[in-house]
Nucleic acid binder design. Structure first.
Lengths: 225, 225
DNA sequence: TGCAGCTTGGAACGTCGTTCCATCCGTGTC
DNA sequence: GACACGGATGGAACGACGTTCCAAGCTGCA
């Protein structure tokens, strides 16, 4: 319980909190030990006393945000819980755009870390409550998790300057326009759905897709008899 | 069609090819302009003449591998085509572990690049052939794509030293053991499925999940009447 | 043969993650 | 109440990276 030298003691908690703020403000690339040192009015060495390296720091920041996002999910019917978990992550990504990319990377790199079990538990509990036979629990849960992680990664809009809303519109419009100019023989499908993509609703699409995944699991494992 | 100074002319194609080899041999972090320069017996500046920056290089490497993987997918029943596309990507990730992480990042960052339309077309064509109403094409295709991308990201085993098979076993075992030691009150589900995860079959699980997603889309959009 | 411009290769710059170490200060000891 | 111990601090230093810049080389055309 020592507290050397400073009144605003440095701690892993305070460091992770500052890292999240820095990531929010300056994006993935903005998280540097120098910027973090300045924000905490200390030196890089002091930070390394509390955190092993940058990977661990990123992981801790990711887990802190995920834990906070999942904390608000209450109890309800399995399908509702799954929707709530998905939307909680979705909202968290809205607030912390760097989370989308981080989440997938974090979970595949260090599944023994805290984030993977956290998310697996949050998704697996309602999935098992859906009536899926226990032998299929892991596969069914993984299916939902893959969908959620994939959607998370794709919905991370990187731009952050100015109005996020305007950025998003311009971003989607640029992509849709590029799609419409593709070769008609090679990309008939992409050209045809470009318009749908230009004015789709992220959240609506995410929930619809999640419902489809749930429906698919139930179709393969009909509850009751 | 000029070819200054060297017989083994530098070209964007040769650079991308070397980048893929370097990524395969040394992993994500091993791709540096210095290492690439040495492998190509040239200087960094010469590479920058053909490639704008590292992001573009990574993107080109990703697209080259994806294009080659998808080239082998033939025509068949929609469900078979979807399975074939998924497995093609799965095999590509086995051969190029860095692809798992790259794919998701690449597609969200630059959807106007070549990779996003390529994959969207490969997945969207069979999805639309499933009998899904056109208004739902984009959502249904995105659902499958999210699942595939999420699975891709999670199945990228990073270790590459020695036998990949042994690495994988040790990796999964370490994670499963860590899961089994979690708090019983907070993580009942994770503890219970840890064993399933320890000896699951990646490819089998992926295909089963993909089938569930397809079944879900069909459940929401019944073909026929 | 000479010139113009595409292409090359490597030096140089600024920034990063990480290591190292001199210094500081709260705590326990006598 | 002095003193040493060791946990904690902060900043200098190192090596590697992405990128820029430029002098030089080579090729194709006049």
């Amino acid at each position: 319980m020592t507290r050397a030298r400073r009144s605003d003691a440095l701690s892993r908690e305070r460091i992770v909190e500052a890292a999240v703020e820095l990531l929010d403000a300056t994006g993935e690339a903005g998280l540097t030990f120098r910027a973090l040192s300045e924000r905490l009015s200390t030196g890089a060495g002091a930070i390394y006393w509390h955190v092993a390296n940058k990977d661990e720091l990123r992981g801790a920041a990711t887990d802190a945000v995920v834990a906070s996002a999942l904390a608000g999910v209450g109890a309800a019917a399995p399908r509702e819980v799954l929707r709530a978990v998905g939307l909680a992550l979705f909202d968290a990504i809205d607030e912390h755009p760097w989370l989308g990319t981080q989440l997938g990377a974090q979970m595949s790199r260090t599944p023994q870390g805290p984030t993977t079990p956290r998310l697996l538990e949050a998704i697996g509990r309602p999935v098992s409550a859906l009536g899926v036979p226990e032998a299929a629990w892991f596969t069914a849960t993984s299916t939902v998790m893959y969908y959620v992680l994939g959607a998370a990664g794709q919905n991370a809009v990187n731009g952050r300057a100015g109005s996020a809303e305007l950025d998003r519109t311009a971003f989607l419009d640029a992509a849709a326009t590029a799609w419409e100019e593709l070769d008609a023989d090679d990309y008939p499908f992409v050209r045809r759905v470009a318009a749908q993509m230009r004015d789709h609703d992220d959240q609506r699409q995410f929930v619809d897709g999640l419902d489809a995944v749930i429906a698919g699991i139930l179709a393969l494992h009909p509850p009751g008899r």
